[in-house]
């Protein structure tokens, strides 16, 4: 059986993708420092998917196989969890290579689910990947809060403030709870109430998801995150608090 000869790099435009990413990263992401030891690939849950692994991906970039990289779906199956760089003796930033590989396709050709979630977040100022508006969010929060204040009198004084000025914590909220299972918001409210925490949601930028980042759409990512930061600053909150 014969195997097709592997064509290494286009001599005219060698390593364009790798060079571009190196320019973006501190110390070039150490992308030239690979010892090919395979520690990354051996501890990566995405190894084997699409006949790819982190070492192979980096070698392909180093060999200038930009077209093959652009065609591969593998960058969408790597979660950029950073276990590869954590175990790498040379601290090679493969996750950044993956993130930038996602930009090699036009925006509209990236996975439709991620694209749709980013577009939803851009629809209004909630930043919700499920498209919930600030008004919807306020309605659900107030409705659920009232219900629990009545049903559980020990929590009659519990609050779930939106846009409370000067609160210490600006808390985000994954859309899943207000949109599909609102009762699941309550345990956290109770904890914050008992601990005497001064917190608030923001009517703008409350959504905790960030699918524009996953889409590698820097401009939209900057816009959505900017709304959250702006709202937290306007309210004078000191700490941005994620529910995780």
């Amino acid at each position: 059986m014969t195997v097709a000869v592997l064509k290494l790099g286009n001599t005219k435009r060698k390593n364009v993708f790798l060079d571009k990413v190196k320019e973006l990263l501190p110390d070039g992401g150490n992308l030239n420092a690979c010892l090919t030891c395979g520690a990354c690939a051996s501890g990566c849950p995405a190894t084997g998917l699409e006949n790819m692994d982190p070492r192979k991906f980096l070698r392909m970039a180093a060999l200038g196989m930009d077209e093959e990289i652009a065609k591969s779906d593998w960058p969408w199956m790597c979660t950029m969890c950073q276990r590869c760089i954590y175990v790498c003796p040379m601290q090679i930033d493969i996750p950044q290579l993956i993130f930038n590989a996602r930009t090699l396709r036009p925006r509209e050709e990236r996975p439709s689910g991620i694209l749709g979630s980013c577009d939803m977040a851009m629809r209004n100022e909630s930043n919700s990947a499920m498209g919930a508006s600030p008004e919807d969010f306020e309605f659900v929060v107030e409705d659920v809060l009232e219900e629990y204040q009545e049903a559980q009198p020990e929590f009659a004084d519990m609050q779930a403030p939106i846009d409370k000025e000067g609160a210490q914590f600006f808390l985000n909220q994954n859309s899943r709870e207000p949109v599909t299972e609102p009762d699941e918001m309550v345990p956290l409210w109770k904890i914050l109430h008992l601990a005497g925490v001064d917190w608030t949601y923001g009517s703008r930028g409350w959504g905790g998801e960030n699918y524009c980042m996953f889409l590698a759409d820097d401009e939209s990512w900057k816009k959505t995150t900017g709304i959250t930061v702006d709202q937290a600053n306007k309210l004078g909150c000191k700490t941005y608090l994620n529910t995780e």
Binding site: P45, L49, W76, M77, T79, M80, G113, A129, F214, L215
Partner: peptide, 24 residues
């Protein structure tokens, strides 16, 4: 810090590659 990723991050949940995500 040495834990394995579960496969829910990075947009994988919404990427449409369900079989690969479950294999991951």
């Amino acid at each position: 810090s040495n834990n394995y990723c579960c496969g829910g991050g990075g947009g994988f949940l919404q990427s449409g590659f369900k079989d690969q995500r479950l294999a991951y």
